[in-house]
């Protein structure tokens, strides 16, 4: 490189270009990571196919895929917005990626925007794939797509807040363990594949307040039963979103 190569000419790229580049990179990192794909694609797909084909859990009247598909969509949102985001962000914090980016021209809010966009892109890919599989298995969804969209967005906000709270406060290893444990517990106890009414009454009222229960039950109300808009579930998700994002904003540590 010749003389004058390094002559200073500083400047930040335009914000939309920075956010687009950051979103693309975050999404590539996520899709390249095998463990993440296991969580976000393979497990939901396997559960959907397995539990639709084999009557392991009594899912009530009607085709089991009509019960399962909304729950699996809720699980997909949780796997990306909560589990995947918590683990990835936890390790980015641990390995100084967040620290290094904080010294780059990319503002912090733009980094968080890019992370959210990357989560949304991944969710779109998941939903397209899982919907196609569910339809092939004989799923016949009902209801208003806009209600579904609103629930998915609220669910994403709620899970992102909780995932970032975990990633920004715990050690990366603790986040890894806790995020996987929570994923497993909520998979079983959150109305994803096991109907909530299989649990004792007292447990049901508590479990119903979990974000994944609110999302899966809300989606089921619309997609299985044709409800217009399940406001109670939407409200629960909104409260989780406010609490989670608020706490993450307050307690998140970048290093």
């Amino acid at each position: 490189m010749s003389a004058g190569t390094y002559t200073p000419r500083p400047g930040a790229a335009p914000l939309p270009r920075m956010i687009a580049a950051q979103t693309a990179l975050e999404t590539r990192m996520l899709l390249r990571n095998g463990e993440q794909l296991l969580l976000t694609v393979i497990i939901p797909t396997l559960l959907l196919v397995l539990f639709s084909a084999v009557d392991i859990v009594d899912t009530g009247s009607g085709a089991s895929v009509d019960f399962l598909a909304p729950g699996i969509l809720a699980l997909a949102v949780m796997s990306t917005a909560f589990t995947g985001q918590a683990i990835a962000t936890g390790f980015e914090r641990r390995y100084g990626v967040l620290k290094r980016l904080a010294a780059s021209p990319l503002p912090r809010w733009a980094l968080m925007t890019a992370k959210t966009l990357s989560v949304l892109v991944t969710e779109v890919l998941q939903i397209v794939l899982l919907t196609a599989i569910a339809l092939a298995l004989g799923w016949s969804p009902e209801g208003n797509p806009l209600s579904v969209l609103l629930l998915l967005v609220l669910g994403t906000a709620a899970f992102s807040g909780l995932g970032l709270l975990m990633a920004g406060t715990l050690k990366a290893e603790a986040t890894l363990a806790a995020a996987n444990l929570v994923f497993l517990l909520l998979l079983v106890g959150g109305g994803v594949i096991v109907p909530l009414d299989k649990f004792p009454d007292a447990a049901q009222s508590v479990l119903g307040l979990l974000p994944v229960s609110a999302l899966s039950e809300g989606l089921r109300d619309v997609l299985q039963h044709g409800a217009s808009m399940p406001w109670a579930e939407a409200g629960i998700l909104a409260v989780w979103a406010v609490l989670g994002l608020g706490a993450a904003a307050k307690f998140f540590r970048w290093e």
Binding site: T5, Y6, R9, P10, G11, A12, A13, P14, R17, M18, A21, Q22, L25, R28, M29, R32, N33, F91, E92, Y95, G96, V97, K99, R100, A103, S104, P105, L106
Partner: peptide, 29 residues
């Protein structure tokens, strides 16, 4: 800024990360 260690996504390739940093600037090398 060059940190004492770390600062790169563990799954990123060297050229990928460098190209990304370049995209965050207006007149990169």
């Amino acid at each position: 800024v060059m940190l004492q260690s770390g600062g790169v996504y563990s799954g990123a390739r060297a050229d990928e990360m460098l190209r990304h940093m370049a995209k965050l600037h207006a007149h990169p090398l």
